[in-house]
Design a protein around this nucleic acid. Structure first.
Lengths: 189, 189
DNA sequence: GTCGACATGTAACCAGTTACATGATTAA
DNA sequence: TTAATCATGTAACTGGTTACATGTCGAC
């Protein structure tokens, strides 16, 4: 009784559009889509695999995607999904909606740091170092991807999102150095 | 039947520690704690108000906080919570755990940008501008807070988390300018 | 003979949000 | 009289995760 007459239909979850959008790069299976997500939008929108399969089924019931089964001999059978005209319309509508939802950061580490007065300073410094390590690992992964897409004009927009990731990683790295420096200064006093 | 003998108790959700940590700054009510969260850890960990009340009750049942009722004449009665010795131990244990969960970013905007090939360029540019606007609004809020805590040595750790926010906002702003520039270059061709 | 890639899904769960309810006081 | 601040909470929901199940093929 939550979808009464006159009530406008609640908007689809963002993940639905994420999966729909991935289909604009061509027909593919849930499995392939999941792998594509892992090294593209996964950096700022990362649904679980099982969730991706569920969303693909939803897209079909909505008429936003079509499905066809492909039987394979050497490998398990698979289902291929393709975006429909209605799906593309729905996606464009969502994309052009001027409302910009602010990004949300969830950082258990910053939370810990906020309560740093209760931590042993060496432990804290070690965790800041670990953050740096993770960030540089990420930068290495991003650099690999960058090589592949930098000069591909058809991947201009994905490239811009990658640059966002790089910018944030660099900012974090510099910030971490600053924190370590100040931490040492404090311990010296 | 999901907590059998021998199974180690599942770790508490991060939000529980977030609320517990806030109590280390002194006894307070759910209401006050909610307000404190809004302009401190709220920037990287933001539970709903109703969630905060629920977590405070959980802390009491865990023995991590004590509760006392305070009757007021001019205002509604309230419950004040204070962290216990067991609570502080549990918090310290969590803080010193060397495992660093990487931060997660959820950005519906980057998701849209990734599919920018389906957007009208002016609409996209407008949304990038809107991101910049939001970021500068945030920077103004952070600058206000910075003035108040910059020279408070007792707030060194909160200050470090604030600097993280500032660094990320600046990085986003510069990145947005770069995107706008490239977007114009592209439209010129 | 074991591991990883391929391929799809179910069932159970959970963390967290939203909307709402209540009700007093004070300021515009 | 309208709105904001103070103050706490319930009930319903939802978006999403985790663990698991199933099975084949090829490489080492």
């Amino acid at each position: 009784m939550n979808q009464e007459a006159g009530a406008r239909p609640r908007p689809l979850p963002t993940t639905t559009y994420a999966v729909l959008g991935m289909l604009t790069f061509g027909e593919c299976s849930g499995y392939d889509l999941g792998k594509a997500v892992d090294e593209s939008i996964g950096y700022f929108w990362s649904p679980a695999k099982s969730h991706i399969y569920a969303e693909l089924r939803r897209l079909v019931t909505l008429g936003y995607a079509s499905e066809r089964k492909v039987e394979q001999e050497d490998r398990p059978d698979k289902r291929l999904y393709r975006i429909t005209a209605a799906g593309e319309r729905a996606l464009r509508e969502w994309l052009n909606d001027p409302e910009v939802m602010p990004e949300s950061v969830k950082s258990p580490f910053l939370l810990k740091l906020f309560f740093g007065h209760l931590m042993e300073p060496e432990r804290l410094a070690a965790q800041v170092q670990e953050v740096k390590r993770q960030v540089h690992e990420m930068l290495a992964r991003l650099a690999e991807i960058e090589k592949r897409i930098r000069d591909r004009d058809d991947l201009f927009f994905p490239y811009m999102t990658l640059r966002s990731g790089v910018a944030h990683c660099r900012a974090t790295s510099r910030w971490a150095d600053d924190v370590l420096k100040r931490l040492e200064e404090r311990s010296g006093r």
